[in-house]
C-alpha cells in the first residue's frame, strides 16, 4: 500500500493537469511528477483510482474518468470563462466542476437524453447563473457512486 502523502501528490497532479489542460496525464508523466519509475507510478495511479469514483478505459492504463471530469467525451460539454474543452463525468458531477474554478464562470451544455434538445447551465461559485430551460431535472436509475458496498470513500 502506497504512502497516503504519495497518493495525495498523485491525485493532485492528475486533477491539476485536467483543470489546466482538459487532458489527463499518462502514468509516465505522473512518474516524473513523483520522481519515481514509470511502473511504480502506474501502480500509484491505479491505487488513486481505486480510492475515487473514477475509472480507466477497460483493459488499459488510460484514465477515462477522473471526477468531476471525464477524459473521454461525454454529452456534458463544459466551458470555463468561455473556453471549451472539458467534459463532466455525468450530469450531477457537472454541477461540482465549479468548485475547481473559483471565481470563474462554468458553462455546461448538454442534450436531453429524451428529446436531444439542448440544455444550458451556468454557475459561478455558489451562484447558479442560468438554467435553460428552468425545468431541468437530474435523474439516475442507479445509486450515486455505485452500489453502497463498492462505493469509494465508504
Amino acid at each position: 500500500m502506497t504512502d497516503l502523502a504519495v497518493l495525495d501528490r498523485a491525485y493532485h497532479s492528475i486533477l491539476t493537469q485536467i483543470i489546466e489542460t482538459a487532458q489527463a496525464p499518462h502514468y509516465t508523466e505522473v512518474a516524473k511528477t513523483l520522481g519515481v519509475f514509470p511502473e511504480e507510478a502506474k501502480a500509484v495511479v491505479r491505487e488513486v483510482i481505486e480510492s475515487t469514483p473514477g475509472w480507466f478505459h477497460p483493459g488499459t492504463d488510460y484514465l477515462a474518468s477522473f471526477p468531476p471530469f471525464n477524459v473521454q467525451p461525454t454529452q456534458y460539454r463544459v466551458s470555463i470563462d468561455g473556453r471549451p474543452g472539458w467534459f463532466a463525468q455525468c450530469g450531477f458531477e457537472a454541477t461540482a466542476i465549479r468548485w475547481l474554478f473559483p471565481g470563474r464562470a462554468v458553462r455546461i451544455e448538454a442534450p436531453c437524453l429524451c428529446c436531444g434538445d439542448q440544455m444550458v447551465i451556468e454557475m459561478r461559485d455558489d451562484e447558479i447563473l442560468l438554467v435553460d430551460p428552468d425545468t431541468i431535472v437530474g435523474y439516475t436509475s442507479a445509486e450515486v457512486g455505485g452500489d453502497a458496498a463498492n462505493r469509494p470513500f465508504r
Binding site: C90, A94, C112, C114, P133, T135, I136, V137
Partner: peptide
C-alpha cells in the same frame, strides 16, 4: 446520472 429538460422528459426516457 443524467440531466433532462423536465421531469416529463426524464419519466419518458427509455432508462
Amino acid at each position: 446520472m443524467n440531466l433532462f429538460r423536465s421531469e416529463e422528459h426524464a419519466c419518458t426516457w427509455s432508462g
